[in-house]
């Protein structure tokens, strides 16, 4: 897929995230997500052996990947990747609710809404000044900006041991995590 002119991406500082799930709730409330559907999700991971144990939290919605499996796989053409900023947009009017994208996405970004019979996904709050998850986070752990700038920050990484390989879809997200979380 042709590269975006200026790919936008998320930066999540997992060393700040306290798993309060404010970002989840803000996103769910703003987009009226169905019960059981989480357009943004926070998960905790633990590891190590006593006394060297560790835990960290990962907040994730859609990663607006450089090679989005959803765009290629959707039979109805409901997904598109914008050239100007690389945002992967889902058009609910075109969605037929086949849920194939929920199998293709390695990050579980598309969430099936049984009330409407179609999938919902993070669209980076297009039309808003900034995504609600960014605005809501009390720890300022989530940022949005040019991926090139985000990727150049010290400690920014994409390869976490508890996440799918970034080689699958080349997600437009970077994390700052403890060194134990690196894959």
């Amino acid at each position: 897929m042709a590269a975006a002119r200026a790919q936008i991406g998320f930066f999540v500082d997992a060393t700040r995230c306290i798993n309060c799930k404010t970002c989840e709730i803000a996103c769910k409330d703003f987009h009226d997500a169905a019960v059981g559907r989480r357009i943004r999700k926070v998960r905790s991971f633990e590891g190590g052996e006593f006394p060297a144990v560790f835990a960290y939290n990962v907040s994730m919605s859609c990663n607006h990947c450089a090679e989005p499996a959803c765009v290629q796989g959707c039979p109805a053409g409901a997904y598109s990747k914008r050239f100007e900023d690389g945002i992967v947009v889902h058009d609910p009017e075109k969605c037929i609710g086949c849920r194939y994208c929920t199998w293709l996405c390695p990050y579980g970004a598309p969430q099936y809404d049984a009330r409407e019979g179609r999938v919902r996904k993070c669209n980076l709050c297009l039309g808003e000044a900034e995504p609600v998850c960014v605005a809501a986070c009390p720890m300022r752990a989530i940022e949005v900006g040019p991926l090139a700038e985000i990727a150049a920050r010290p400690g920014a990484t994409i390869a976490l041991r508890d996440l799918p390989s970034p080689a699958l879809t080349r997600p437009s997200i970077r994390y700052r995590v403890r060194k134990e979380a690196h894959s």
């Binding site: 796989g73 039979p75 849920r99 179609r118």
Partner: peptide, 20 residues
């Protein structure tokens, strides 16, 4: 299986890319 069965015809629209 579809959430919107009446829109099933749209499943033909991405023939060049989609395996489905």
């Amino acid at each position: 299986h579809l959430g919107r069965p009446l829109m099933a015809w749209r499943a033909l629209l991405n023939l060049g890319q989609s395996r489905l």
